[in-house]
Simulated assay, not measured.
Amino acid sequence: MPPTPILLKVLLEERRLLRYGMFCAEYNKAARTVDPHLVGAPPSRAQFHRWTTGELRRLPNTDNCRVLEAMFPGWTADQLFAPCPPDRLTQQDPPPANERTELESRADHSSAEGYADVTAVFPTRAEFTFARPTHTLFDQAKDIRAAGLSLNLLCQQYPDQRLHQLITGGTTLRCLFLDPEGEAIRAREQEEGYTDHHLVTLTRLNIEVLTRLRKRLPAEAGDRLEIAVYDETIRFNITLIDNRTCIMQPYLPHARGVESPTFIIERQPTGAGLYATFEQVFNQLWERSTRV
């Protein structure tokens, strides 16, 4: 007889949350109801594997247990990590693969390929920046590529001096702004309801911040900071860090950028998932851009 699975694995199976990325998204939703400080700090992939295989010798830390109990009301952490009660194992098995509909099969494939590398989701940029301060994202980075509108994450929320230290230390930085002299940024201002050229002014300021920084760099480091602009409909803010982590923030209709959600995507060895999609978006925008 195979060993009895722990209750947590059975409950995750029932809710189709055994895939790591999908689990993290639900974990963060529950964390928000427990304590906003816990959003964006799900278990690592290795920890999640130990949780679901019953390899833990003791319960996870208190915060993890609080979030799990919020995800599964009515169950305590002790119960979640104990063998599943027999009555929970009497559920009907899913139908054989050859009896499932084509739509179900396609949905499973989409879940496996489309969300496998999404590791965290935040409902607003404000909650993202609170949970993931910029120094935790950039301080050790060796390659940063960013495309969006004003790139405030780098230009307003990360100190100039730290950027200078990164680039002189060998980090490569490519920044792609929505052209402050173009039509697309004015269309976005109209959509967000600005009448004072707020986005144009902010973007010009941020470009100036980086051009001044570039002038202060040693001669051998100047080429490691590239600045460019593009004039196309703004759809995403994309930040790629060390060819491994993607921070993707969509632009919603008639909503300010700070009100849009943020997705954290980690590249997988198999290449499956969304990382490659948004890296391609960045590369195509960069190829069509104008250097500053």
Rank of each mutant, 00 (worst) to 15 (best):
L213E: 04
H164Q: 13
Y20L: 05
T124C: 13
N206T: 05
L7A: 12
R204S: 02
E183Y: 00
R288A: 12
W286D: 01
G193T: 06
Q161C: 03
G21F: 01
F128Y: 14
G114F: 09
T195Q: 14
A25P: 01
L178I: 03
Q157M: 04
R224S: 02
R174H: 15
P36M: 09
P180L: 06
L18R: 14
Y27E: 05
N152S: 13
T168A: 08
P250S: 06
E55Q: 15
T245P: 01
L89R: 10
R100W: 02
T201Q: 10
D196S: 11
L252F: 09
R188A: 10
T101H: 07
P2E: 15
F23G: 05
F263D: 03
E127Q: 11
S111Q: 03
I227M: 13
L176V: 01
I144R: 06
D35S: 13
R100I: 00
G257M: 03
C84Q: 12
T239N: 04
Q161I: 08
R256Q: 07
T33Y: 03
R106T: 00
Q140G: 09
F72W: 05
R58G: 08
T211C: 07
A147H: 05
R186S: 07
T62V: 06
E127G: 04
G193D: 06
T52V: 14
R212C: 10
Q156L: 07
A184C: 02
P218Y: 03
T245Q: 08
S111W: 00
N237M: 08
N61D: 14
P42L: 01
H254R: 10
R145L: 09
E266W: 01
P95F: 01
P5A: 12
Q92E: 10
P36N: 11
R235S: 14
A112Y: 13
A272M: 11
L11G: 07
R58A: 12
Q157P: 00
L151Y: 06
P250T: 05
G170I: 13
P123S: 15
F122L: 13
A31E: 05
H254L: 02
P36L: 09
A70W: 00
R244T: 07
A184L: 02
G222Y: 02
Q284G: 01
R188C: 06
I207M: 14
L151A: 08
R224E: 00
R288D: 11
E104F: 00
I265G: 09
T129M: 11
R132A: 08
Q156H: 09
V10H: 08
F130V: 00
F138V: 04
A131G: 12
E191Y: 03
P3W: 07
L103K: 12
R57S: 15
E181K: 07
G273K: 10
C84A: 15
A276D: 15
Y251R: 01
E266P: 04
A126E: 14
N243M: 01
T129I: 13
T201A: 07
R15T: 03
E220S: 13
E232T: 08
R188I: 06
R212A: 10
P85V: 09
V121F: 09
A46E: 14
I238L: 08
A184E: 02
F81N: 00
L213I: 06
T195R: 15
V258E: 07
